[in-house]
Design a protein around this nucleic acid. Structure first.
Length: 274
DNA sequence: CACGAGACCTGTTCGC
DNA sequence: TGCGAACAGGTCTCGT
């Protein structure tokens, strides 16, 4: 499901709480259960349960598409991959068939990792850098500059879209927001990265930031049965709008495969000189 | 180094 | 209505 805006939305909800959800910061993990073994990347189930029990949640943050729970001594990292979601529920409520892992917390609360497709992963480590080490820069960090992006772009000769999806190049973009940002930037998804001028790189960074910020403002996108709460899907420019008019010029949106991913773009606005 | 194919998975929607 | 195919917000590994 989730890309940077959805992960950011979930992270904020868990960290700050809401009218309907309690704030998790400050609570202590009292027990843990794993229902699908492969969900837990490291350590073993036994050590996981032993080690996490008794640790307090000091803070909850996001890095790329990872959710980080900073505990007393360790960091718990969760990646939702395609279909994962985190639910806060009463510890006494029944375990759902699609729950893969659960943490039991103070006040009879349970944090459940729900993940139909079983692609999601969880790590408990002393040093989060072991997991996050290869991630590229955060696109919304103010000190990430257009100059830096341009440098990184021209140091590769790759199609723009797969490069934007590469988390070691830039952290947080996924299939939706890459298509949306490329449309806003008027760049063809198959443009070669080393052909971008500095002004084009600048426009790309600005577009990425605009799209991500709008996604966050709308609490992410809710497309199908996975993840509800956001409404950015009502404002898509091109994603899943094959055949519908381009919001800028009216030309029907095209869908092609780029790097095995469905890719939506306007053949006129994003001609890229092709 | 860059890219495509296949793997990991289940649920929903599409097309005949 | 029914049923198989296609498709899905992600990432890894392997072969060319």
């Amino acid at each position: 499901m989730p890309e940077l805006p959805e992960v950011e939305t979930i992270t904020r909800l868990l960290r700050q709480g809401s009218d309907t959800a309690p704030r998790l910061v400050g609570l202590v993990v009292r027990d843990a259960q794993v229902f699908w073994e492969r969900t837990l990347e490291t350590p073993s189930i036994g050590e996981f349960r032993r080690r996490i029990t008794g640790q307090r949640i000091r803070d909850i943050r996001r890095r790329g598409k990872f959710i980080l729970f900073e505990l007393t001594t360790d960091t718990l990292l969760i990646h939702l991959r395609m279909s994962g979601d985190l639910l806060v529920e009463a510890a006494s409520s029944p375990i759902q068939p699609l729950h893969r892992l659960a943490l039991y917390l103070d006040y009879d609360l349970r944090l459940a990792f729900n993940d139909p497709r079983k692609f999601g992963r969880v790590w408990l480590v002393t040093d989060a850098e072991i997991v996050l080490g290869s991630l590229g820069p955060e696109p919304l960090e103010p000190d990430f500059t257009a100059g830096e992006l341009h440098q990184r772009l021209v140091s590769h000769r790759r199609q723009l879209k797969p490069l934007l999806l590469d988390q070691s190049f830039l952290a947080g973009l996924g299939n939706i927001y890459a298509d949306e940002a490329l449309h806003l930037a008027h760049l063809h998804p198959q443009t070669l990265s080393d052909s971008l001028s500095y002004p084009q790189s600048e426009r790309l960074l600005q577009s990425i930031r605009t799209i991500l910020q709008e996604g966050i403002r709308r609490n992410g996108a809710s497309i199908d049965w996975v993840y509800r709460g956001g409404d950015f899907q009502n404002y898509f420019r091109v994603y899943q709008r094959t055949g519908e008019p381009c919001p800028e010029c009216g030309t029907p949106i095209h869908r092609i495969l780029v790097g095995q991913r469905g890719t939506h773009y306007c053949p006129i606005c994003q001609d890229g000189g092709r």
